[in-house]
């Protein structure tokens, strides 16, 4: 009945532990969907499921062993039996075999994942700091040339494909100017630099690109947040009492911008990660991006599935952490 639905609402103040509980359920549900998707896709998609499961290279290379392979994969068995085997395999660490890299998928993934995380995690932090700084400045000097310039730059970067900017920078600074290496994460001993410096030197450009993009996303959030806070009465009061601009900015404005920033970071972690993948390809950075790129070329399905799974897990973890942190950051609930 129309009216009942608009009835006196039973006000539900979300108990934060319960809230996290329900979010955890959502994440688990998502994980379940992903795993099931990974299971069903090769079996539902066009083509021989055997090929879809082991990958093209393996398929065409194995010859007569095909039937044995089919039996070994248990494709003749009932679906739920296969699903059970698949799940056990996942949990025990058997994620399949990559014919591209000629090693178990799990090993390839761990090898490449660390490089991606090495690139993405610092950039997330740096970008947040950069956005906080620039966003505050832009908000403070609203509508001035600084603000317009910064906002314009943000908009420009926001509109570009990440990897295209990467290509431009690589071309400009590595090919033409030779300031940075042409790719990869290390020079494999070719340069005399100590390991960390060497990696850092290689990491500079890709890190710059990923950071620039994340900072562009965050910039607007910070700016809007700070603008709205600067307009609030208690801030004007603080200024009237003689607090300097800087103090006001840092004590009030940024603290309040922190919570939305963290939430946005979590929500967009997936996007940042995805963007980083393509940037890695351009710089031949040995992370998940390169893995996926090569796997696509070789149609190495087990590798692709697991890459998807691990990336999804990372994103879920990031979301979860943000959910746990949020109540502590939101000044309203403190």
């Amino acid at each position: 009945m129309a009216d009942v639905s608009n009835a006196a609402p039973v006000q539900r103040h979300e108990h934060p532990t319960a809230a996290i509980g329900s979010r955890a359920v959502r994440y688990l549900a998502a994980l379940f969907v992903i795993v099931t998707l990974n299971f069903l896709l090769p079996r539902m998609m066009p083509g021989d499921p055997v090929m879809n499961i082991v990958g093209e290279e393996a398929y065409y290379g194995s010859g007569e062993v095909l039937d044995a392979l089919r039996a070994d994969l248990g494709l003749d068995e009932a679906l739920h039996v296969q699903y059970g085997r698949y799940m056990t395999g996942l949990v025990t660490g058997d994620w399949g075999y990559s014919y591209l890299y000629l090693q178990p998928v799990r090993e390839s993934i761990t090898l490449h994942l660390r490089w991606t995380l090495a690139l993405v995690l610092p950039s997330v932090v740096l970008a947040a700091l950069l956005a906080a700084l620039l966003g505050s400045i832009a908000a403070w000097k609203r509508s001035s040339r600084t603000d317009v310039g910064l906002s314009g730059a943000h908009l420009l970067i926001y509109s570009m494909p990440h990897y295209w900017l990467a290509m431009l920078l690589l071309f400009m600074f590595s090919f033409k100017l030779g300031w940075f290496p042409l790719g990869r994460a290390t020079s494999a001993g070719a340069s005399e630099l100590p390991y960390l410096i060497d990696v850092g030197w290689h990491m500079f450009l890709p890190l710059l690109v990923v950071t620039a993009f994340k900072a562009a996303y965050d910039f607007l959030i910070v700016r809007n947040s700070v603008v709205s806070i600067l307009g609030e009465d208690y801030v004007l009061m603080a200024q009237a009492k003689g607090l300097s601009g800087m103090a006001v900015l840092f004590r009030h404005a940024l603290r309040n911008a922190l919570a939305p920033l963290v939430t946005v970071t979590a929500i967009q972690f997936g996007m940042v990660l995805s963007g980083a993948l393509l940037v890695e390809v351009v710089f031949s950075w040995p992370g998940m991006g390169t893995l996926i790129y090569d796997a696509i070329g070789a149609r190495d399905y087990p590798l692709l599935q697991s890459a998807f799974l691990i990336i999804a897990i990372c994103v879920l973890i990031a979301n979860f952490i943000a959910d746990v942190l949020y109540p502590y950051l939101d000044p309203r609930t403190r």
Binding site: R26, A29, A30, V33, N52, M271, I292, Q305, F308, A312
Partner: peptide, 22 residues
């Protein structure tokens, strides 16, 4: 619930995976 689940799955990797099969 459905919306939230789909929202949290990373878009590009999913699209890549499905496109590779298709």
């Amino acid at each position: 619930g459905l919306t939230d689940v789909v929202l949290v799955i990373p878009a590009l990797p999913l699209v890549i995976l499905v496109s590779v099969y298709l």
